[in-house]
Amino acid sequence: MFRIRKYFVLFGIFCLQTIYSQNSVETQLAWADKLFASNQYFDAITEYKRVLFFDNRNELKAKIYFKIAKCYKAGAHLDEAINFFASVGKNATNDSTIFSAKLEIIRCNILRKTTERALQLCNELEKDGRFASNKNEINYWRGWTYMFADDWESASKIFGESPADKELKLLCNQVIDAKVSVTFATVISYILPGSGQIYSGKILSGLMSLAWNLAAGYFTVNAFIANRAFDGIVIGELVWLRFYRGNIENAKNFAVEKNFEVSNKALKFLQNEYRGLKP
């Protein structure tokens, strides 16, 4: 399949040749674009670099760096992509190219989950007078940054500012509703062992924990009542306390785990099913 596609590309080049044969650089660029379009990003970079090596005009530079950066991004090499998007900014002559390069850097930062950096870049971009009219777009990516930073409240707030982003706001709200409170889970299991686990949806585990704590507690108290203080201390320390501590640990872990699952489910939805603009 891949080979056939390759032939197809070559055939495409053949056709293109007849159109562009006057200017080798243009031809070369078209060839590279074809490779890019057929997802052969590594080879596309080679050909873009070739164009750049033989034609060093500044306006071409910005354009090609942008393409190379896109190739790296498509190959999940985000560090390299960011480097090249940054080079676009240095060579570009018009503001709109600079703006999209900067947005791309933010998007790469979102993808590699360096969300603090992404937020910082959003703020810088917002302060830049040249891009005052693009506030909505910046905010859109700020919202995405918050989602990738697992801060769904802030994301919901940001998406709420623009009616166009209603779907994302709804998703954020769903996540917020589905999440459990780790503190609450921990605190209630201090009071009633097992309740935190049940609250996070692990009913069986919660009941087992409760049973162990009741049993160990019973034996401990019994030993003290029967004036067997030593046995009481031993059972209390080695058995009861152990299960009591384990119960709190579990309550906390299950709550964290549950939240983790909720976040990942939403992110999975964004990756696979969401139809809007994605990083």
Partner: peptide, 18 residues
């Protein structure tokens, strides 16, 4: 990065399992 040929690859949105 480029010392080995690489292919297109999607970045997973999900948080890595701890």
């Amino acid at each position: 990065t480029d010392w080995q040929k690489w292919e297109a690859k999607q970045v997973s949105y999900e948080f890595p399992t701890k």
